[in-house]
């Protein structure tokens, strides 16, 4: 510690130790913050149609379009160390062969940002249940200056008759007439410092397991079981889907 340079190095060296220690304690403090998440998932409507993975594809595949009701109370996932929660809804269905594990496919997801996270365009904003107007485009909502705010506290969702974000298909290309399909909620809590944690159904210390969060089992209908209107097969766009790119999709406008 005899010269300024040595003192500089010593102070910085000990600072890194302190910073790492504090970060560790903060990471551990997540585990004493109690959690009691609950959710209910219900199937609203399911259709299976034939389609192509992309425009020039010769291969025809079967796609399932699943609408659902989702109500969640995940407020307790947001403690002081939570940056954001990646929430997703999986469709789980048994494989065609008994010795293979069940297939899982995500049909809907959302990035729920905590209060401490800086604004980002990909963050999920809960639709206003009272509003009958179509969703505002990004440009319009920016121009109106009023910040899009959720009508519910962070982590609380009430989505009746929600359209999926993704139509799903199977690796075999056949999805019609599958039985024992279940919708299951999952999440990934992303903290500021510390470990990522996923949804769990069992109690873990101060963390209660997820109550609900699984739909009743249902069967997929036959392909084209009933006449399908194109409007029924629309998918939801996340905010991240509106990134501007050449020939990319444009935000939905009011009159279109």
């Amino acid at each position: 510690m005899h010269s300024a340079l040595v003192r500089l190095q010593n102070v910085f060296g000990f600072f890194t130790t302190v910073a790492f220690t504090v970060a560790t304690v903060i990471a551990l403090s997540s585990f004493i913050s109690p959690q009691s998440p609950s959710a209910s998932v219900q199937l609203r409507n399911v259709q299976v149609v034939k389609g192509r993975p992309h425009y020039y594809s010769y291969k025809k595949e079967e796609y399932a379009h699943i609408k659902f009701d989702l109500d969640t109370d995940l407020r307790t996932l947001f403690n002081w160390n939570t940056k954001q929660v990646f929430l997703y809804l999986k469709a789980i269905y048994p494989s065609t062969r008994a010795n293979e594990p069940a297939s899982e496919a995500i049909i809907w997801d959302a990035i729920l940002a905590s209060n401490s996270a800086p604004w980002h365009q990909n963050h999920y904003t809960h639709p206003d249940p009272k509003s009958k107007l179509p969703k505002k485009s990004k440009k319009a909502s920016l121009a109106s200056k009023s910040k899009a705010t959720s009508p519910y506290p962070i982590g609380e969702l009430h989505l009746p008759n929600q359209r999926p974000k993704y139509q799903i298909t199977d690796i075999t290309g056949k999805l019609g007439n599958r039985t024992d399909v279940v919708l299951e909620l999952g999440w990934n809590v992303q903290p500021w410092v510390g470990a990522l944690t996923w949804a769990n159904f069992d109690k873990f210390g101060a963390w209660q397991g997820l109550r609900g969060g699984r739909s009743e089992a249902f069967d997929l209908p036959e392909v084209g079981a009933k006449a399908v209107k194109k409007k029924d097969l629309e998918t939801e766009k996340g905010a991240e889907g509106y990134r501007l790119e050449v020939n990319g999709e444009q935000p939905r406008r009011k009159n279109v």
Partner: peptide, 10 residues
């Protein structure tokens, strides 16, 4: 740590 934990503001 204490200040942040008390105010729940990281």
């Amino acid at each position: 740590f204490l200040v942040g934990f008390m105010t729940q503001d990281i």
